[in-house]
Design a protein around this nucleic acid. Structure first.
Lengths: 334, 334
DNA sequence: ATACGTCATGTAAGCGTTTACATAAATTAT
DNA sequence: ATAATTTATGTAAACGCTTACATGACGTAT
């Protein structure tokens, strides 16, 4: 249907090799030939077939990305950073979503794998450690984002979730809070577990009791945050003075729901988030949260994956630092 | 490097055709042969090469998408809907970003075009009508989102922007507002122009004067909204009682900045947005805005593009309805 | 027993590129 | 003038798959 390189060659009166050389700039071609080729290309509206090229070159110039949900600003930021980085390397992104479901994640990953990507970056929650380890072993260029998998630490792009949440809760305690609730994500994966652990360690470090009835679960979305607001109200405001949340998304929805129920933030309840999404600075009061260097993580993950795919094992990820941002959603108690 | 279908055939003691048939389920194969193939596949960790398959089948099973910026929730929602729809059709998404820049948009589009996509959906602002028309003509399956291009109306997935904004401003007037400022997007494209026009028409319909000094421009982002907040304060709060905004993103940032400057919303100033992003319902006060059926638009755009690519010209888009959602960011004046 | 259809399987051409190698022309050195 | 080198171009194999067509082994109807 569409024109091929042969059509262009025919029209320009040269061989297909010459056309390829002109269009790729891979070798010197006489000015007359070059002009003829470009003219023919223009007239035919011709584009080199990327699939045929990939087959011949054994290199797709494509980076595969798998995230849970593009519409989550956290992933969107990561993808944006990846795209910018990929673009600079003349590569494009093949993006798929797993929606927190093991089956869909696996299907999406298999799809990516069949595309001969120059790199693959995944964020998966549903797939078990065992299955995931198998993939990581078989495809040594897959890079994992925000999940620490035993045996593959140097292909995991993560932050120190435990320390980050420790800092948050430590800060709350310094502000005079003693009864601090915690809302974790309902997915049982590393970052979630680690943040919870940081929360507990901070309490323990200050000789405060860990009260399991103050530890709740929510889906990491605005809907999840709304639901958990009701649960917290049911628990009773006298049981806690602050709520540390797994994410900004949860925190924002929680805060909105509390305020709309007539509960003042931070006067009645202090709230903290995690990620430093734009959303968090738009809220009133602005959310106290943790800067999560997701753009940088996306960029480095991409670079690492490409290096690994090329057999370069010298590339080191480095570490990614978080930082507590104190804004107005936390009240200092006497 | 990676195993090929030949390796599998060899290992399973069958021909490549049989392997292909088993892996694609395209023809009956004896149980013994099937079992042998699947065993060999597993042992080799084999995936069919998607590029080779595309070349042979002349069908990439891939939908190309070009948006301005993935991290804009508006686009993220659209892409999510596209992914869900594509997934149901066993297709995947090739996503690129144009970042509001004509050059980058064109490069991204050219890239998409070279991938033999089964469909292409684009949202571009930088590319001129002339250049865009040329693309639309040459590739009759490209579908345009949120931009009305003369001569290609039935391949444009849009809403009635003018009417929608008319309704917003009409509502503001009904609530007693007479001096209404407007913040438009800084990009001069159809939806922006149309919304502005709706704003003006609503004023005129009520015999109110259109005051150009109350019409401002902002980048359609949270940063843009923050900037314009300062400009509005400079203009002076006595000059207007309400601000209608091109988008929720702008409106949210504007509202936050005003409130943080000690200006109460809606007591001092009423604000309206557009799109009904999640963000808008998280704000306090919740934003009065317009439901923009972006998910549905993404879905239909994808279906249309695939139909066109298949030469099916009977597919009709239908229309996309907006709806005003009245929340708490608008005050009723006496 | 013969002829016919059915079924599982294999053979090989084709998809649109890239690129190693071959070749012919032009240039330079001797 | 001849040989050696450089340069532009062409030829054809290869990339990994799909699939039309061919083939041979069966089962069934006659």
């Amino acid at each position: 249907m569409a024109a091929t390189i042969k059509d262009v060659a025919l029209k320009a009166n040269v061989s297909v090799a010459t056309v390829s050389r002109v269009l790729n700039g891979t070798a010197k071609v006489s000015d007359t030939a070059k002009a003829a080729v470009l003219k023919a290309q223009r007239e035919l509206g011709f584009y080199l077939n990327a699939n045929a090229r990939t087959l011949a070159r054994q290199d797709s110039q494509t980076i595969g990305i798998l995230v849970s949900d593009i519409s989550d600003p956290y992933f969107a930021s990561m993808i944006k950073a990846c795209d910018v980085t990929a673009n600079a390397l003349n590569k494009s992104l093949l993006i798929t979503q797993g929606f927190y479901d093991a089956k869909r994640e696996q299907k999406a990953l298999d799809n990516l794998l069949s595309h001969q990507c120059s790199g693959i970056i995944i964020h998966v929650l549903g797939i078990s450690d065992e299955v995931l380890s198998d993939y990581m072993k078989r495809f040594p260029y897959i890079v994992l984002v925000n999940r620490l998998l035993k045996g593959f630490e140097d292909r995991c792009v993560t932050i120190d979730n435990e320390q980050a949440m420790f800092n948050v809760v430590n800060y709350l305690i310094e502000q005079g809070h003693q009864k601090i609730a915690y809302v974790q994500s309902e997915y049982e994966v590393a970052d979630n577990t680690q943040r919870l652990s940081g929360y507990k360690k901070a309490l323990i470090a200050h000789n405060l009791e860990v009260d399991d009835s103050l530890i709740l679960k929510a889906h990491p979305s605005l809907e999840g945050g709304s639901k958990v607001a009701k649960e917290l109200i049911d628990i009773g405001l006298n049981k806690f003075t602050a709520v540390a949340c797994y994410s900004d998304t949860i925190a924002a929805a929680l805060m909105t729901n509390l305020i709309n129920s007539g509960i003042s933030v931070p006067d009645n309840v202090s709230i903290t988030g995690f990620d430093n999404l734009f959303l968090s600075s738009c809220m009133i009061p602005a959310l106290t949260t943790v800067i999560n260097p997701i753009e940088q993580m996306g960029k480095r993950a991409l670079e690492l994956s490409i290096a690994l795919k090329n057999g370069d094992h010298s590339f080191k990820l480095g570490s990614f630092e978080t930082k507590l941002v104190c804004r107005n959603s936390v009240k200092k108690l006497k």
